[in-house]
Simulated scan of single mutants.
Amino acid sequence: MAGAVQSGNISKANPMNGGHGLYSYTKNSTYQGKVIVAVKDLIMEAISEKLNSCIISSSNTICVADMGCSVGPNTFIAVQNIVEAVQKKYQSQGQGHSGLPEFQVFLNDHSVNDFNTLFRSLPPNRNYYVAGMPGSFHGRLFPSNFLHIVHTSYALQWLSQVPMEVEDTSSPAWNKGRIYYSSAGDQIAKAYADQFSKDMDCFLHARAKEVVCGGLIMLTVPGRLDGSPHTRVFSNVCYDILGSCLMDMAKMGITSEEKVDSFNIPVYFSSPQELEATVERNGCFSLEKLHCLPLEKTQTSIPEKARAISYHIRAGLEFLLKEHFGHEILDELFDSFNRKLEKSEVFQYGRAYSLFALLKRKPT
């Protein structure tokens, strides 16, 4: 028997809301879509400058993977940007239209992702072939030396699991009374940072086996500036507000404090320095570019912003919240969350940044 295929299903699934309903990811991922548009020029530039000529001359089929694709239209925008950039690169090398490669695109997410909605939404006139690849990107998903380009956007901030010590009542890092790390003690923040580091190690180790020499990884994650406190990150403040709403409901007897104590959001916002350290530690990729991009502020009213953020976070966290607390509390929870957002100062002092990193596979 040949060597066994390694499963990628080694992490806990946290699927976004599927379908096309009011709280679906499809209808509430506009911000992620804006980020993909914002990095388009960086992707075009990366492929133009860094995609190896030997790949262009030797490959009739370019294999692309979008990891953490979810269900909305954003993955198709990202894929089309990549396909167009590669075609432009080929043409700049003197290849005519007849010499352009074909593209095999793999859309990856956990097996519980709403792939039905995803595939029903495929662009009808796409210029690439598509296949689904279920599994966790924290493990192996593809054969060795198979992928030419890996793209992931707003997915790697999701941890494979909540750090164990955060949920251990005997640990000094037990996160009692909170659902997140940003306003907790240093030990809890360190536990989250360490988990992010471990997960990035797993991600890069798996991709080092799958990406061809000279192949590219383009990743975009929500992050923060080097030295910036976690308490000033926009999304972190929002998660803390959501946690306060759950504690209010516990005090009213709608849920229990024990349930709140045992719930933690498995998300971490890294700094450029932390991201760079994981790449250096892995050693299989060169970090070609690293940009920190600020979020452009919208000019809508505070109530409109609060509602958009409430729907956005519900689309991302509803699965976890429903699994832990039951669906009965969701409407009341997010009504309370929306009201607190309107009264908070998060829109004045909260900061939102995206980190874009370009990695290139080193020669083996």
Rank of each mutant, 00 (worst) to 15 (best):
M1N: 14
I10E: 04
Y31T: 09
K34H: 12
K40I: 03
D41E: 11
G72P: 01
G72H: 02
N74M: 11
A78D: 04
V83H: 00
A85S: 12
S92P: 00
S98E: 14
E102P: 01
Q104G: 04
V105S: 04
D109A: 08
D109Y: 05
T117A: 12
L118W: 09
F119S: 08
N127H: 09
H148S: 13
V150C: 14
V150L: 13
H151G: 09
Q157A: 12
Q157E: 13
S160K: 03
Q161S: 15
E167I: 14
R178F: 10
Y180R: 03
A189E: 06
K190R: 09
Q195P: 08
F196E: 02
F196P: 04
F196A: 13
M200N: 12
A208P: 01
C213E: 15
R232N: 13
F234K: 06
S235K: 06
N236K: 01
N236V: 00
D248N: 10
A250I: 05
M252V: 14
G253A: 08
G253D: 11
G253M: 03
V267A: 11
S270P: 10
S271A: 14
F285H: 02
C292A: 12
L295W: 07
T300P: 02
I302G: 04
K305S: 07
A306S: 15
S310Q: 10
G326T: 00
R339M: 13
K340Y: 04
R351N: 10
A352T: 11
A352P: 06
Y353M: 07
L359H: 02
